[in-house]
Design a protein around this nucleic acid. Structure first.
Lengths: 104, 104
DNA sequence: TGACCTTTATCGAAATAAATTTAATATGTA
DNA sequence: TACATATTAAATTTATTTCGATAAAGGTCA
């Protein structure tokens, strides 16, 4: 009867988590998160760093925002984006140590 | 000139990581990982726990195996599956604390 | 205020890619 | 042979990605 999983996620949380993972599971969006790991940046700077169109970046940012992975605030004419919270930062750290063995 | 991102992932690693995240970013596959967090299980047991067809589970397991997230070994007529390594376990922990605030 | 520039968001549409489901069959073990 | 798992295929459906054009919101300056 050893019935305990380490991760007893409820269905709701499974759904929420899988949506967030899916959102992060796109190369451009993951790149955006890496770029933001240094701190807040306006959208235009992200565009410059990741190399695609403004429209495209804006849409990807929106997807990350929807899932609570990224947050943003207006500063004058600019929108400053950042990684939403410390939990997400931790998650990114865990990913880095999982997937970037040599880059620590 | 503060040019350093916390996460300086190379393009290759970004691609690898995003593929793995995408693989985990599916409710059924995440559920399979949760179910396996308690230890090794044969495929038939996973089928029973997650509730779908054998063929479907087998296909999802394959996707996780391809990305190095899950490993398996034969034991007689059964295939025992488990979460691939400690890094992935850490990642699952990070996800749990991010997405399951009340279930700790 | 009005004209204009910058920054970001949104829309429409085309192209592409996945995911789902089911069924049939193959493989390997006891 | 029967059981456990994997593979394949095909049909179907659904979603994603991307681009270009344009809209909206804020800032500047005459």
């Amino acid at each position: 009867m050893s019935e305990s999983n380490l991760f007893e996620m409820k269905e709701d949380n499974i759904v929420k988590a899988s949506k967030a993972l899916k959102a992060m599971g796109h190369p451009l969006r993951l790149k955006i998160l890496c770029v933001l790991s240094g701190g807040e940046l306006p959208v235009m700077d992200i565009v410059a760093k990741v190399g695609t169109t403004q429209s495209n970046v804006s849409q990807h940012i929106d997807i990350l925002r929807e899932k609570g992975i990224l947050s943003s605030r207006r500063d004058g004419s600019k929108i400053l984006c950042q990684v939403a919270d410390k939990e997400i930062i931790n998650l990114l750290h865990a990913m880095q140590s999982t997937f970037c063995p040599a880059e620590l």
